[in-house]
Amino acid sequence: MLEVTCNDRLGKKVRVKCNEDDTIGDLKKLVAAQTGTRPEKIVIKKWYTVYKDHVTIGDYEIKDGMNLELYYQ
């Protein structure tokens, strides 16, 4: 289990607990549940890499306590 911080720099900052084998899509759902936005509208980025829904968090080597950027499309 790891905890990731997702921050759109517009006032929403959420810490989400997730498994390593969760996909980014799952993470988005969790974030959506916590922030109250639709998961389809969420884009998770780290610098310029847009994380794709079908790839797991472990594969992206997202570690505990990492900050992810939250965008809306």
Binding site: T5, V14, R15, V16, K17, C18, A33, Q34
Partner: peptide, 13 residues
């Protein structure tokens, strides 16, 4: 710091 749920909460979710 924003908000975060506890493990149980997240499990429920």
């Amino acid at each position: 710091a924003g908000m975060s749920l506890s493990i149980e909460e997240t499990n429920k979710l």
